[in-house]
Write a protein that binds this DNA or RNA. Structure first.
Lengths: 139, 139
DNA sequence: TAAGATAATGATAATCATTCCCATTTTAGC
DNA sequence: GCTAAAATGGGAATGATTATCATTATCTTA
Protein backbone atom coordinates (compact mmCIF):
# COMPACT_ATOMS: atom_id res chain seq x y z
CA UNK A 1 0.00 0.00 0.00
CA UNK A 2 1.34 3.43 -0.90
CA UNK A 3 1.68 6.38 1.43
CA UNK A 4 -0.57 9.20 0.25
CA UNK A 5 0.29 11.65 3.01
CA UNK A 6 2.83 13.88 1.29
CA UNK A 7 2.30 17.49 0.28
CA UNK A 8 -0.09 17.84 -2.65
CA UNK A 9 -1.55 20.71 -4.70
CA UNK A 10 -5.11 20.14 -3.47
CA UNK A 11 -6.31 20.20 0.15
CA UNK A 12 -6.78 16.68 1.53
CA UNK A 13 -10.57 16.42 1.14
CA UNK A 14 -11.92 12.91 1.38
CA UNK A 15 -12.21 10.86 -1.81
CA UNK A 16 -15.65 9.67 -2.92
CA UNK A 17 -16.33 5.93 -3.16
CA UNK A 18 -15.91 5.96 -6.93
CA UNK A 19 -12.71 7.99 -6.80
CA UNK A 20 -11.32 5.59 -4.21
CA UNK A 21 -12.29 2.65 -6.41
CA UNK A 22 -10.42 4.19 -9.33
CA UNK A 23 -7.31 4.72 -7.22
CA UNK A 24 -7.45 1.26 -5.67
CA UNK A 25 -7.82 -0.46 -9.02
CA UNK A 26 -4.94 1.58 -10.39
CA UNK A 27 -2.76 0.42 -7.49
CA UNK A 28 -3.76 -3.22 -8.06
CA UNK A 29 -2.65 -3.19 -11.67
CA UNK A 30 1.12 -3.34 -11.72
CA UNK A 31 1.50 -1.22 -14.83
CA UNK A 32 0.56 2.15 -16.31
CA UNK A 33 -2.85 1.84 -17.99
CA UNK A 34 -5.19 3.96 -20.08
CA UNK A 35 -8.44 5.40 -18.73
CA UNK A 36 -10.38 3.10 -21.06
CA UNK A 37 -8.51 0.03 -19.82
CA UNK A 38 -9.01 1.09 -16.22
CA UNK A 39 -12.72 1.58 -16.89
CA UNK A 40 -12.98 -1.95 -18.35
CA UNK A 41 -11.11 -3.43 -15.37
CA UNK A 42 -13.38 -1.67 -12.90
CA UNK A 43 -16.52 -2.92 -14.65
CA UNK A 44 -15.13 -6.46 -14.72
CA UNK A 45 -14.58 -6.22 -10.98
CA UNK A 46 -18.26 -5.42 -10.51
CA UNK A 47 -17.75 -1.71 -9.99
CA UNK A 48 -20.67 0.37 -11.29
CA UNK A 49 -19.45 3.67 -12.69
CA UNK A 50 -19.27 5.59 -15.96
CA UNK A 51 -16.33 6.32 -18.22
CA UNK A 52 -16.65 10.06 -17.64
CA UNK A 53 -16.28 9.46 -13.92
CA UNK A 54 -13.07 7.55 -14.49
CA UNK A 55 -11.64 10.47 -16.46
CA UNK A 56 -12.83 12.97 -13.85
CA UNK A 57 -11.45 10.91 -11.00
CA UNK A 58 -8.07 10.52 -12.68
CA UNK A 59 -7.83 14.28 -13.24
CA UNK A 60 -8.64 14.91 -9.60
CA UNK A 61 -6.18 12.29 -8.40
CA UNK A 62 -3.48 13.92 -10.50
CA UNK A 63 -4.20 17.30 -8.94
CA UNK A 64 -4.05 15.69 -5.51
CA UNK A 65 -0.63 14.33 -6.33
CA UNK A 66 -1.72 10.69 -6.03
CA UNK A 67 -1.61 9.74 -9.70
CA UNK A 68 0.62 10.64 -12.62
CA UNK A 69 0.17 10.23 -16.34
CA UNK A 70 2.27 10.20 -19.43
CA UNK A 71 1.20 10.14 -23.07
CA UNK A 72 2.17 7.43 -25.56
CA UNK A 73 3.43 8.27 -29.03
CA UNK A 74 -0.08 7.76 -30.40
CA UNK A 75 -1.65 10.21 -28.03
CA UNK A 76 -3.15 7.96 -25.37
CA UNK A 77 -2.66 8.91 -21.72
CA UNK A 78 -1.40 6.17 -19.39
CA UNK A 79 -1.99 6.52 -15.66
CA UNK A 80 -0.20 5.05 -12.67
CA UNK A 81 0.14 5.71 -8.94
CA UNK A 82 2.87 8.28 -8.45
CA UNK A 83 6.53 7.17 -8.08
CA UNK A 84 6.24 4.30 -10.51
CA UNK A 85 7.46 3.77 -14.05
CA UNK A 86 8.61 7.31 -14.67
CA UNK A 87 11.53 6.50 -16.98
CA UNK A 88 11.33 4.90 -20.38
CA UNK A 89 13.08 3.79 -23.52
CA UNK A 90 10.64 4.39 -26.37
CA UNK A 91 11.11 3.04 -29.88
CA UNK A 92 10.52 5.51 -32.71
CA UNK A 93 9.61 2.73 -35.11
CA UNK A 94 7.26 0.36 -33.24
CA UNK A 95 6.28 2.74 -30.44
CA UNK A 96 6.99 0.23 -27.66
CA UNK A 97 8.11 1.59 -24.29
CA UNK A 98 10.11 -0.25 -21.67
CA UNK A 99 10.52 1.34 -18.24
CA UNK A 100 13.97 1.95 -16.79
CA UNK A 101 14.43 0.79 -13.23
CA UNK A 102 16.50 3.67 -11.90
CA UNK A 103 16.30 7.42 -11.48
CA UNK A 104 19.49 9.49 -11.25
CA UNK A 105 17.65 12.80 -11.01
CA UNK A 106 16.72 13.20 -7.39
CA UNK A 107 19.55 15.61 -6.58
CA UNK A 108 18.76 17.71 -9.59
CA UNK A 109 15.08 17.77 -8.70
CA UNK A 110 15.88 18.96 -5.20
CA UNK A 111 18.02 21.73 -6.59
CA UNK A 112 15.25 22.79 -8.97
CA UNK A 113 12.79 22.91 -6.10
CA UNK A 114 14.89 25.58 -4.45
CA UNK A 115 15.83 27.63 -7.51
CA UNK A 116 12.49 27.85 -9.32
CA UNK A 117 9.13 29.32 -8.34
CA UNK A 118 7.52 26.03 -9.20
CA UNK A 119 6.37 23.21 -6.93
CA UNK A 120 7.48 19.86 -8.35
CA UNK A 121 5.38 16.74 -7.76
CA UNK A 122 6.95 14.31 -10.17
CA UNK A 123 8.95 14.11 -13.36
CA UNK A 124 9.26 11.92 -16.41
CA UNK A 125 12.32 11.08 -18.43
CA UNK A 126 11.98 9.40 -21.78
CA UNK A 127 14.63 8.29 -24.27
CA UNK A 128 13.55 7.94 -27.89
CA UNK A 129 15.32 5.78 -30.40
CA UNK A 130 15.13 2.38 -32.05
CA UNK A 131 14.79 -0.88 -30.14
CA UNK A 132 16.77 -4.04 -30.83
CA UNK A 133 14.08 -5.91 -32.84
CA UNK A 134 13.41 -2.88 -35.03
CA UNK A 135 17.07 -2.48 -35.94
CA UNK A 136 16.90 -5.85 -37.69
CA UNK A 137 14.05 -5.02 -40.02
CA UNK A 138 14.16 -2.44 -42.79
CA UNK A 139 11.73 0.30 -42.01
CA UNK B 1 21.05 26.28 -39.81
CA UNK B 2 21.16 22.93 -38.10
CA UNK B 3 23.47 20.05 -38.94
CA UNK B 4 21.43 17.11 -40.16
CA UNK B 5 24.31 14.80 -40.82
CA UNK B 6 24.33 12.62 -37.70
CA UNK B 7 23.41 8.94 -37.55
CA UNK B 8 19.67 8.39 -37.97
CA UNK B 9 17.31 5.37 -38.06
CA UNK B 10 16.42 5.84 -41.72
CA UNK B 11 18.84 5.88 -44.65
CA UNK B 12 19.58 9.42 -45.85
CA UNK B 13 17.30 9.47 -48.88
CA UNK B 14 16.60 12.92 -50.26
CA UNK B 15 13.64 14.85 -48.88
CA UNK B 16 10.84 15.85 -51.24
CA UNK B 17 10.07 19.53 -51.76
CA UNK B 18 7.09 19.39 -49.41
CA UNK B 19 9.00 17.53 -46.73
CA UNK B 20 11.79 20.07 -46.99
CA UNK B 21 9.26 22.91 -46.70
CA UNK B 22 7.85 21.35 -43.53
CA UNK B 23 11.31 21.03 -42.01
CA UNK B 24 12.37 24.54 -43.02
CA UNK B 25 9.24 26.13 -41.62
CA UNK B 26 9.70 24.18 -38.39
CA UNK B 27 13.24 25.52 -38.12
CA UNK B 28 12.06 29.09 -38.73
CA UNK B 29 9.56 29.02 -35.89
CA UNK B 30 11.51 29.37 -32.69
CA UNK B 31 9.18 27.17 -30.65
CA UNK B 32 7.61 23.71 -30.60
CA UNK B 33 4.36 23.78 -32.60
CA UNK B 34 1.47 21.48 -33.40
CA UNK B 35 0.98 19.93 -36.83
CA UNK B 36 -2.14 22.05 -37.31
CA UNK B 37 -0.27 25.24 -36.46
CA UNK B 38 2.58 24.29 -38.76
CA UNK B 39 0.07 23.60 -41.54
CA UNK B 40 -1.48 27.07 -41.05
CA UNK B 41 1.94 28.72 -41.09
CA UNK B 42 2.93 26.93 -44.27
CA UNK B 43 -0.28 27.98 -46.04
CA UNK B 44 0.21 31.57 -44.90
CA UNK B 45 3.69 31.49 -46.40
CA UNK B 46 2.17 30.53 -49.76
CA UNK B 47 3.10 26.86 -49.53
CA UNK B 48 0.57 24.61 -51.27
CA UNK B 49 0.19 21.33 -49.42
CA UNK B 50 -2.39 19.31 -47.47
CA UNK B 51 -2.69 18.67 -43.79
CA UNK B 52 -2.16 14.94 -44.26
CA UNK B 53 1.15 15.68 -45.93
CA UNK B 54 2.24 17.72 -42.94
CA UNK B 55 1.50 14.78 -40.63
CA UNK B 56 3.21 12.32 -42.95
CA UNK B 57 6.25 14.55 -43.34
CA UNK B 58 6.58 15.03 -39.60
CA UNK B 59 6.43 11.27 -39.02
CA UNK B 60 9.10 10.72 -41.62
CA UNK B 61 11.30 13.50 -40.24
CA UNK B 62 11.04 11.95 -36.80
CA UNK B 63 12.14 8.58 -38.17
CA UNK B 64 15.03 10.31 -39.89
CA UNK B 65 16.09 11.81 -36.58
CA UNK B 66 15.58 15.39 -37.75
CA UNK B 67 12.48 16.21 -35.75
CA UNK B 68 11.24 15.34 -32.29
CA UNK B 69 7.83 15.62 -30.69
CA UNK B 70 6.33 15.66 -27.27
CA UNK B 71 2.69 15.56 -26.23
CA UNK B 72 0.95 18.21 -24.17
CA UNK B 73 -1.25 17.33 -21.23
CA UNK B 74 -4.29 17.62 -23.46
CA UNK B 75 -3.01 15.17 -26.01
CA UNK B 76 -1.69 17.42 -28.73
CA UNK B 77 1.71 16.62 -30.25
CA UNK B 78 4.20 19.49 -30.51
CA UNK B 79 7.06 19.23 -32.98
CA UNK B 80 10.46 20.88 -33.09
CA UNK B 81 13.82 20.36 -34.76
CA UNK B 82 15.86 17.96 -32.68
CA UNK B 83 18.08 19.25 -29.86
CA UNK B 84 15.74 22.05 -28.88
CA UNK B 85 13.34 22.54 -25.99
CA UNK B 86 13.66 19.05 -24.60
CA UNK B 87 13.21 19.94 -20.92
CA UNK B 88 10.15 21.41 -19.31
CA UNK B 89 8.39 22.52 -16.18
CA UNK B 90 4.70 21.69 -16.68
CA UNK B 91 1.92 22.96 -14.44
CA UNK B 92 -0.65 20.38 -13.36
CA UNK B 93 -3.33 23.02 -12.94
CA UNK B 94 -3.13 25.29 -15.99
CA UNK B 95 -1.15 22.97 -18.25
CA UNK B 96 1.43 25.60 -19.20
CA UNK B 97 4.94 24.41 -20.02
CA UNK B 98 8.11 26.46 -19.79
CA UNK B 99 11.31 25.02 -21.25
CA UNK B 100 14.43 24.63 -19.10
CA UNK B 101 17.61 25.90 -20.67
CA UNK B 102 19.99 23.21 -19.54
CA UNK B 103 20.46 19.45 -19.83
CA UNK B 104 22.44 17.57 -17.19
CA UNK B 105 21.85 14.19 -18.77
CA UNK B 106 24.44 13.85 -21.49
CA UNK B 107 26.76 11.64 -19.46
CA UNK B 108 23.90 9.40 -18.45
CA UNK B 109 22.71 9.15 -22.02
CA UNK B 110 26.16 8.13 -23.19
CA UNK B 111 26.27 5.44 -20.53
CA UNK B 112 22.86 4.16 -21.59
CA UNK B 113 23.97 3.99 -25.20
CA UNK B 114 26.64 1.50 -24.21
CA UNK B 115 24.68 -0.60 -21.75
CA UNK B 116 21.38 -1.08 -23.58
CA UNK B 117 20.49 -2.72 -26.86
CA UNK B 118 18.71 0.44 -27.86
CA UNK B 119 19.85 3.25 -30.13
CA UNK B 120 19.07 6.61 -28.56
CA UNK B 121 18.27 9.63 -30.72
CA UNK B 122 16.94 12.07 -28.19
CA UNK B 123 15.31 12.30 -24.79
CA UNK B 124 12.77 14.40 -22.96
CA UNK B 125 12.69 15.35 -19.32
CA UNK B 126 9.58 16.91 -17.88
CA UNK B 127 8.83 18.07 -14.34
CA UNK B 128 5.18 18.24 -13.31
CA UNK B 129 3.88 20.42 -10.54
CA UNK B 130 2.19 23.76 -9.93
CA UNK B 131 3.46 27.05 -11.34
CA UNK B 132 3.76 30.29 -9.40
CA UNK B 133 0.54 31.95 -10.63
CA UNK B 134 -1.52 28.81 -9.95
CA UNK B 135 -0.28 28.58 -6.35
CA UNK B 136 -2.03 31.90 -5.62
CA UNK B 137 -5.46 30.86 -6.77
CA UNK B 138 -7.62 28.22 -5.11
CA UNK B 139 -8.10 25.38 -7.54
C1' DT C 1 13.53 10.12 -73.40
C1' DA C 2 9.28 7.25 -72.80
C1' DA C 3 6.80 3.51 -70.27
C1' DG C 4 5.93 1.35 -66.31
C1' DA C 5 6.62 0.96 -61.41
C1' DT C 6 6.83 3.23 -57.11
C1' DA C 7 6.24 6.75 -53.89
C1' DA C 8 4.03 11.15 -52.56
C1' DT C 9 0.14 14.02 -52.31
C1' DG C 10 -4.66 16.05 -51.49
C1' DA C 11 -9.18 15.86 -50.07
C1' DT C 12 -12.17 13.94 -47.25
C1' DA C 13 -14.10 10.36 -44.42
C1' DA C 14 -13.27 7.52 -40.42
C1' DT C 15 -11.35 6.74 -35.88
C1' DC C 16 -10.94 7.24 -31.21
C1' DA C 17 -9.51 9.28 -26.85
C1' DT C 18 -11.23 12.84 -24.32
C1' DT C 19 -14.45 16.46 -22.96
C1' DC C 20 -18.93 18.57 -22.67
C1' DC C 21 -23.74 18.70 -21.41
C1' DC C 22 -27.47 18.10 -18.61
C1' DA C 23 -30.71 15.50 -16.05
C1' DT C 24 -30.42 12.74 -11.95
C1' DT C 25 -28.36 11.19 -7.66
C1' DT C 26 -25.53 11.63 -3.74
C1' DT C 27 -23.26 14.16 -0.21
C1' DA C 28 -22.37 17.83 3.25
C1' DG C 29 -23.73 21.41 6.30
C1' DC C 30 -27.27 23.11 9.16
C1' DG D 1 -35.03 16.20 7.14
C1' DC D 2 -33.88 20.33 3.99
C1' DT D 3 -31.20 22.82 0.80
C1' DA D 4 -27.10 23.76 -1.81
C1' DA D 5 -23.19 21.98 -3.78
C1' DA D 6 -20.75 18.31 -5.71
C1' DA D 7 -20.61 13.94 -8.14
C1' DT D 8 -22.32 10.90 -11.50
C1' DG D 9 -24.08 8.53 -15.97
C1' DG D 10 -24.82 8.32 -20.49
C1' DG D 11 -24.64 10.00 -24.71
C1' DA D 12 -23.44 13.70 -27.89
C1' DA D 13 -19.73 16.77 -29.36
C1' DT D 14 -14.93 17.84 -30.10
C1' DG D 15 -10.71 17.67 -32.22
C1' DA D 16 -6.31 15.68 -33.29
C1' DT D 17 -4.74 12.07 -35.97
C1' DT D 18 -5.09 8.29 -39.38
C1' DA D 19 -6.98 5.74 -43.30
C1' DT D 20 -8.60 5.63 -47.94
C1' DC D 21 -8.19 6.18 -52.58
C1' DA D 22 -7.87 8.65 -56.74
C1' DT D 23 -4.42 11.61 -58.81
C1' DT D 24 0.20 13.40 -59.54
C1' DA D 25 5.12 13.43 -59.28
C1' DT D 26 9.38 10.85 -59.23
C1' DC D 27 12.51 7.20 -60.27
C1' DT D 28 14.28 3.23 -63.04
C1' DT D 29 15.71 1.22 -66.79
C1' DA D 30 15.52 -0.03 -71.24
Amino acid sequence: MLDHSFHSPLPPTRLTTKQQAVLTQLERLQEAVSAQRLYAELRQHGESLGLATVYRSLDLLKLKGLVQSRTTTDGEALYSPIQQDQHYLTCLQCGSSVPLDFCPLQAMENQLRRSQAFTIYYHTLEFFGVCEPCTHQAQ
